[in-house]
Design a binder for these strands. Structure first.
Lengths: 119, 119
DNA sequence: CAGTATCCCAGGAGATACTG
DNA sequence: CAGTATCTCCTGGGATACTG
C-alpha cells in the first residue's frame, strides 16, 4: 500500500485518508442528518447541541470544500440557508451506516460487560 | 439516540463510540494485519514503520484490554510473543474493510481531481 | 438567521532513552 | 526480542465575543 499525498498532507493507508475527510467529531453526524432531506444551519445546531458554532461552521465548510455537501443561500429576511448531500455525500452514507451499526453492537456488548453480574 | 457512558467517558453517538475503540492512527492497521494469521511484535513494528514503540505498544495494550486481540507469550530465548484476533477482533474486520474500500475510492477521486487537465 | 474571529486547553502522537 | 518511561509538540476541539 503506497503512501498517498493530498492537499499537502501525507497518508499511509486508505482508512486514514477516508477518516481525514469524514472523520472528526461532527462530520459523520452532519452527513447522517442530511441523509433524507435538506437541513438549515440552526436545525443542525439544535440537533447537535454539543457542537459550538465554530465547530459546526468549520465542519460544514470542510465538507463543502471536499464536495460532500452543497449549500443554497436564499436572499430572504431573515436569511435562509439549506445544506444537502452531493452525490459524494450520498455515497458516504453506506459507510457511516456500517460504522453506526457496528458502534451500536459494541455499545450493547460493552454495556453488558460493565453490567455483568457481580459473581 | 441517547448518550452513552463507558469507562467513565461520555459518547454522543454510536460512531463516536466505535471509533473510540478501533480509531486512532494504528488500531485499524494492526487489526487488519492480524486478519489472516498471528503476528509477532517486531513483525508489526517493521510493517508499521511510522509507529514508534510507544504508540505500537499503547495501541496493542488498548486492543488487548478492550478484547479485540489476545497475546501469547512463549518462554523462549529470545522471547517470542504472538498477537491474534479474538472473535470481537474478527468482527471488526468487515467494518475496516468497508472503510478501506471507501478510502481507496476517495483516493482515486481526489487524485483525479488534483490531476485534472489544466483546462 | 447564519455565521466568523480569538484565545485557550487536553490529549493523541512523536522522539529518545532505557530494561527484563 | 519485546516492550516501558519521559518529555515534548501539535492540532482538534471548547468557550466566548462579535457581525452581515
Amino acid at each position: 500500500m503506497p503512501d498517498f499525498i493530498n492537499d499537502n498532507h501525507l497518508f499511509h493507508n486508505p482508512v486514514e485518508f477516508a477518516l481525514s475527510k469524514i472523520g472528526g467529531t461532527y462530520k459523520m453526524p452532519i452527513l447522517w442528518r442530511l441523509k433524507e432531506r435538506t437541513w438549515r444551519y440552526n436545525e443542525l445546531r439544535k440537533s447537535l447541541p454539543h457542537a459550538s458554532d465554530r465547530m459546526l461552521s468549520k465542519s460544514l465548510n470542510e465538507l463543502l470544500t471536499d464536495g460532500f455537501i452543497s449549500k443554497a443561500v436564499f436572499a430572504e429576511v431573515p436569511p435562509r440557508t439549506e445544506y444537502r448531500l452531493t452525490i459524494r455525500g450520498r455515497e458516504s452514507i453506506i459507510v457511516i451506516d456500517t460504522l453506526r451499526s457496528y458502534g451500536l453492537k459494541l455499545m450493547s456488548e460493552f454495556d453488558s460487560e460493565s453490567n455483568a453480574p457481580l459473581r
